[in-house]
Design a binder for these strands. Structure first.
Ligand code: ZN
Ligand code: ZN
Ligand code: ZN
Ligand code: ZN
Lengths: 181, 181
DNA sequence: AGTAAGCTTGTTAGATGATAACATCAAATA
DNA sequence: TATTTGATGTTATCATCTAACAAGCTTACT
């Protein structure tokens, strides 16, 4: 889902308990329409549908899952169909590919192309997208010292989101032995 | 290659002009022997050979490249052979998998398992491994604000190393039109 | 030594992820 | 309308990774 007021650096936050996800989707599609119109890109029915499917899932979507769905809807769909659409959406800055899990998520702040920074919950699979300038700065500084010029950042942090921590509290919670650290 | 004196945060630096890479390999193997002995893991001939091959290449190695080499040496080698060895080596903290390019590199500081931070040169393919605590700290802080508990970090920075920048200076160097930005 | 248990490797088969190459169709342009 | 460009359909293939079971080694115990 998208943040209502851009929470400092959070472009896309974890899904809250209950929310009308259809609104997330339609908002994303509207933004996409606007962005493509603005930059003269063609958000064709196929591409739009793929974007809708990507947003439709709350968790990252696999290319072959999309393929299966498209195969049912249209009566033809081969891998290139979905991969081409995804390539377009990535280049348009509308979706991101998560290298660590070969899957795709809708971008929480489309428009300008940007490398994303992601928090991926291994419990529920949801993803938050950050834009933490401090992070890029720290990276750039480290790189600088080695004379390395940064072109693209892949930052994917796996862990457990707040909801999942609440529902499955770790053993030793509170002041027990294995808790700290 | 490995750093002689742990350069603050650089676990594995870019390969310099000329160096005796065989020494890098044998050093890595010795460290691996020691680490496995210490933790009671079995670095079998096969696993050791795979590690040697990974280190033998200056750049990240693909699983199927290893498979091809093993196929020549032994007269039998199927995908599970190499993937199992790589799994072992990863869990033993001897190699890292680079998710952004489906390839493997030797760990510059084996022993404790750790998530790596990598600078990958798109010019020459070499990789540097960092352990920048500031980076992890910044990430942890961002995650904290969302109640997210970090488990594993995937940080892979693509760019151009110092050597490659020198040998192929970008157009517009200095004060030209396309330079800045 | 004998032998059972568990780890390691061999082997076959297949799932999943991604791309090349060419044909066809639709939209934009001249 | 004719031409050109871009989007999609189609077929085939490559690349990456894993499941499942069989066979071989090591280790530990009797
Ligand atoms: Zn949502
Ligand atoms: Zn984004
Ligand atoms: Zn390492
Ligand atoms: Zn380089």
């Amino acid at each position: 889902m998208t943040t209502s007021k851009p929470d400092a650096t959070v472009l896309r936050t974890f899904a809250p308990e209950r929310h009308d996800h259809r609104r997330c989707v339609s908002t994303a599609l509207s933004k996409a329409d606007a962005a493509c119109t603005a930059s003269g890109l063609r958000l064709t029915p196929l591409r739009r549908r793929v974007l809708e499917l990507v947003w439709g899932s709350h968790t990252p979507v696999k290319a072959y899952d999309l393929l299966a769905i498209l195969g049912r809807e249209r009566h033809q769909a081969a891998p290139p169909t979905v991969y081409r659409a995804l390539d377009f959406l990535q280049e348009a800055g509308l979706v991101h590919r998560l290298a660590s899990m070969n899957a795709f998520v809708g971008c929480g702040e489309p428009g300008g192309t940007h490398a994303g920074q992601f928090l991926i919950c291994s419990g529920c699979g949801t993803v938050a997208e950050l834009a933490e300038p401090g992070l890029s700065k720290t990276i750039a500084a480290s790189a600088e010292r080695l004379g390395f010029e940064v072109v693209r950042e892949t930052i994917e942090i796996e862990g457990v989101c707040a909801d999942c921590r609440r529902s499955k509290p770790r053993t030793g919670r509170g002041a027990a032995s294995t808790a700290a650290k």
